[in-house]
Each structure stands twice: as structure tokens, then as C-alpha cells.
């Protein structure tokens, strides 16, 4: 029904870029799924992509069984504090990172297999009142946390054994940092968004705060997802989970904004709307593609360079979709419902 309501402009070539069902897994022991993701896992000389599912009290690792099944290999039980999200660690092997807490993140833990003890285990990486956490390439994790007096931004270099090899502090801006995104192709550059609707840039090597650039007041509470540097400009993909629908523009799902880091000036480059009449939740971005679960229970996919909705996944056999995440390595889109059903789609 939702697909029929979409105007032709939003889905002008759905056949070319639609989502193709690949495989499904179902965790019968999952009372309420909170997140889904993928992780590269090396075992017996072979590296493969595995699915990770999380409920409030347990995180499970699934291996692919050809042709199109998944088998649960291990479940880490984390009963003391609820799991809030899986934190993807790009390019990292054999490590699953999870954030735990009540209303906000209070702990970040690594889940892993220890060959020394021939057992699965988990280890604590950070505690505190954590407002944002993101995994970066080269086994790094960046987080913002706050005390009554100050905000602390920290990059942790993770070890394969689940500990930290090194820690680097970043200079905090005055406003609370709400999200981070690494700059594609620039290992030492990091961007973030703040509660005051600014984009900030750091040098990860030195910890310097290089620039704070205000986004404007049109779309408050912007969240950064990805950033790309090209031709002297910084292109940042933003979502606006709390923006209100307007008659002239609709509801923004994702925007691409170009910043000149030298002057701090910016201009909107691309604008992706939610389908008419839909509201959305926080989305996920991979490469040049965005996805978000709509409150209707459908998943929408956008081509961020063309600024259009390119695919729509209606609610699945298990009911409304509640989660969507891009799988690592271009493997496709994971859609999950609260009952523990996860489906992988090729995009």
C-alpha cells in the first residue's frame, strides 16, 4: 500500500535498484531485538562476513550456511546492563563492539573469541555518560562523554585481545557532540555534529579542534553519518531525525551539505525527502546510499548523490521492520523486526 502511495518521481527506476531478498535468520530465543549488524570473522584460515544480532540481554554471532541459511555460533549474555546498540567497526576482524546503558550509553564492551583460552569472552573498553560513539577504520573507536564539569572526547586504539593499545584525547567544543563520522580517504580527519547544530572537524593525530561551522537553523538536531573530502570541500551526509514536515520541502531524510573548511561557509548540495506522509527514524549510510526505517514499518533507501528514494521495502512477513543497517563490504541491507527476524537484501 505504501509503495502505491509513492509518486513516480520518487521511484522512477525501482527495477534497476530494488532490493533482492538473499537470506533470512530467525532467533526464536530473542524476545525483543534492539540491533543488527555484520562483522568480519576469520576462522580456520578463512575470513567471512557474519551477522550479529542483539537483544537487551544477549548478543549472538551467526555464520552463513550455504546456500541461504544462518547458524548461531555463540551468544554472549550481558544481563547486568541492557544492550542499546551494536557499534560497527569498519575493517576490523573478530571483534564485536556493543554499547550498553539505560537512557544513554553507560558502557562500551568488546565481544570476542580468545584463542588463548579457547573461549568467547567480553571486555570493558569505556564507562561514563557517553553521548556518542563510532567505530573508525584501523581498529579505532571514538566517543564523547560528559561529567558535570566537562566533556571528554577520546579515541581508543583497540587490540585484538579486546583491550586498548593507545588512547588519544580530542579537544572538545563548547557544545555537546551528538555524532561522529570519519572523512573518507583522510585517515587523520574526523567530523562531528553538536547539539548546537554545528559541524566540527578534528585532527585525530594531534587531537586539535580545527574548525566549527554552523549549519543554520532550518533543520535542527542534525546528525552526521559520513563525510568525503573532494576538491577542497568537505561533503557531509546529515540526517535530521527530529525535523518537522514542511509543505514546500517535505520531511528531510538525508541532506548532503558542502562545507568550505577554510571559510566555514556551507551550501546544500542534495536533499533526500521521506516519502509523502511518512515519518522516519534514525537511518544508516553506506557509501553513497542511505536507508531508514519509517514509522509505517517499511524501510526506504535513497541514492544520496541523485537525491531520490530508490527502493522501498514494505513491512516483512514478521510484521513491521524496526531496524535497518548496511552490511559491511557492500553485502547488502539488513532489515530486522523486533521478534528476532533478520533478512539480508542485495541492493
Amino acid at each position: 500500500d505504501l509503495a502505491e502511495q509513492l509518486t513516480p518521481e520518487l521511484l522512477d527506476s525501482p527495477r534497476e535498484e530494488s532490493l533482492q531478498f538473499v537470506s533470512e535468520l530467525k532467533d526464536p530465543s530473542c524476545a525483543c531485538a534492539v540491533d543488527v549488524g555484520t562483522v568480519w570473522w576469520a576462522a580456520a584460515g578463512c575470513r567471512e562476513l557474519r551477522v550479529v544480532t542483539a537483544s537487551e540481554s544477549a548478543v549472538s554471532l551467526w555464520e552463513p550456511l550455504p546456500p541461504d541459511c544462518w547458524a548461531k555460533i555463540h551468544t554472549w549474555h550481558l544481563a547486568e546492563i541492557p544492550v542499546i546498540q551494536i557499534v560497527p567497526l569498519p575493517d576490523t576482524c573478530n571483534l564485536v563492539c556493543v554499547a550498553l546503558g539505560e537512557l544513554e550509553i553507560g558502557e562500551i564492551r568488546l565481544l570476542l573469541y580468545s584463542s588463548e583460552t579457547d573461549s568467547f569472552k567480553h571486555s570493558l573498553v569505556k564507562t561514563g555518560n557517553i553521548t556518542a560513539v563510532v567505530g573508525l577504520k584501523d581498529q579505532r573507536l571514538v566517543s564523547s562523554s560528559r561529567t558535570m564539569q566537562e566533556q571528554q572526547l577520546e579515541v581508543v586504539l583497540l587490540s585484538e585481545a579486546g583491550g586498548s593499545k593507545d588512547r588519544q584525547t580530542l579537544m572538545p567544543p563548547e557544545e555537546t557532540v551528538t555524532a561522529f563520522a570519519e572523512v573518507e580517504g583522510m585517515r587523520e580527519a574526523l567530523v562531528g555534529t553538536t547539539a548546537g547544530n554545528s559541524v566540527v572537524i578534528w585532527n585525530l593525530k594531534t587531537g586539535q579542534l580545527l574548525r566549527k561551522m554552523h549549519i543554520g537553523y532550518s533543520y535542527p538536531a542534525s546528525i552526521c553519518h559520513r563525510a568525503y573530502s573532494d576538491s577542497g570541500l568537505l561533503f557531509v551526509v546529515l540526517s535530521h531525525p527530529h525535523a518537522k514536515e514542511s509543505e514546500s520541502c517535505g520531511s528531510p531524510a538525508f541532506r548532503v551539505v558542502a562545507f568550505n573548511p577554510r571559510t566555514g561557509r556551507s551550501t546544500g548540495v542534495m536533499f533526500c525527502c521521506l516519502p509523502p506522509g511518512c515519518a522516519g527514524r534514525r537511518g544508516d549510510v553506506w557509501d553513497r546510499t542511505g536507508a531508514a526505517v519509517l514509522t509505517s514499518g517499511a524501510v526506504a533507501v535513497w541514492d544520496l548523490l541523485r537525491g531520490r528514494c530508490s527502493a522501498l521495502l514494505p513491512p516483512g512477513p514478521a510484521g513491521r521492520w524496526a531496524l535497518c543497517r548496511w552490511a559491511a563490504g557492500g553485502a547488502g541491507l539488513l532489515a530486522g523486526s523486533h521478534d528476532g527476524t533478520v533478512r539480508l537484501y542485495r541492493y
Binding site: 586539535q208 579542534l209 580545527l210 568550505n260 573548511p261 577554510r262 571559510t263 551550501t267
Partner: peptide, 23 residues
Amino acid sequence: CSESDLGPISLNWFEELSAEAPP
């Protein structure tokens, strides 16, 4: 995007801002 909208553009913005920012 043009320089008139965004001001002078530098391909080495990251190195330049790192040299100028407080340590």
C-alpha cells in the same frame, strides 16, 4: 558550488587548519 558562495577554496585545507589551530 562556486567560490563566490563558499569563499576561497584550498586543496590543502586540512594541513593549513592543523598548522593554524591551537595545539
